[in-house]
């Protein structure tokens, strides 16, 4: 079940340095929301607030509210349950050095005691969903590290989907991939968003226009502008957005 997320008056500090300033943003359920902006603008940092991966960074302090549905994720959520419901795909494909099967079964195994038959079912369904089943069904016992970059990233997406999260965070998931693999991952993001809200960070503006319905532009830790993607790209309200989109900086 796709869930919505929202951020209100969010400020984030690394020690004394303020990395995010007064961010307020809604990310609608069942859609793809894209974060764009130049390097160091805080878009990945915001993404990592949504499933509290920033908790692991020493000296990182968050003020304001982040909600999953109607529930505050910093106040009312067990962090492990939150991360099960808000999955994450990373910039560099990071399959575990385990078999392809165990990679997908990893999450379900740690969130309950599924039977072998249930696991087999989950593995087949999720690998089919990411379009990897036909490529790997005869070598499920091979190491996840034996896959190519694009396959590995789709395996990581399958691994995240196997625990059926309401939201899937993607942190520049195609920046290490070739154009064909990038295309496959983009199609996949659009496809899975119906069941698992997708929030994607990207450097690539074309990618944002291709797949997202809502787009947020960040600059120097501020949310400059957020709007439906078509509107943001055709009639940006802020001068900085326009300059970035037309390639005057970035």
């Amino acid at each position: 079940m796709a869930e919505s997320m929202s951020v209100k008056d969010l400020n984030l500090y690394y020690g004394d340095h303020q990395a995010l300033k007064d961010i307020t943003l809604d990310m609608p359920a069942g859609k793809v929301t894209a974060f764009i902006g130049p390097s160091g603008c805080g878009k990945s940092t915001l993404l990592r607030c949504l499933n509290r991966m920033n908790d692991r960074i020493e000296g990182c302090r968050v003020e304001g509210t982040v909600k999953l549905g109607d529930t505050d994720v910093y106040e009312n959520y067990d962090v492990y349950e939150l991360r099960r419901r808000v999955g994450m795909v990373f910039q560099k494909p990071n399959p575990f050095p385990l078999s392809i099967y165990d990679n997908v079964a990893y999450g379900p195994r740690h969130h309950g005691k599924p039977s072998k038959a249930e696991l087999d079912q989950i593995v087949e369904t999720t690998l089919t969903d990411v379009g990897l089943w036909d490529e790997v069904k005869d070598k499920l016992d091979h190491s996840g590290l034996s896959l190519s970059g694009g396959q590995a990233q789709r395996l990581c997406i399958a691994r995240a989907l196997a625990v059926n999260p309401g939201v899937l965070l993607m942190d520049e998931p195609t920046s290490a991939l070739d154009p064909i693999s990038t295309g496959l991952v983009e199609e996949l993001a659009v496809k899975v968003a119906k069941e698992h809200t997708v929030i994607i960070v990207t450097h690539n503006m074309q990618q944002a226009t291709r797949i997202s319905t809502k787009c947020a532009f960040f600059y120097l830790g501020e949310l400059v502008e957020a709007a439906p993607t078509a509107q943001l790209f055709s009639t940006p309200k802020d001068k900085r957005t326009e300059d970035y989109l037309t390639g005057r900086f970035g």
């Binding site: 990071n94 740690h110 969130h111």
Partner: peptide, 24 residues
């Protein structure tokens, strides 16, 4: 990145150590 992957799936520190770190 292995640890990130495991924490990102909602695993605890011990689950991460036993599930990914020790096997690697």
């Amino acid at each position: 990145s292995y640890r990130d992957g495991s924490y990102g799936l909602g695993c605890t520190r011990w689950q991460t150590i036993v599930g990914v770190v020790l096997p690697s």
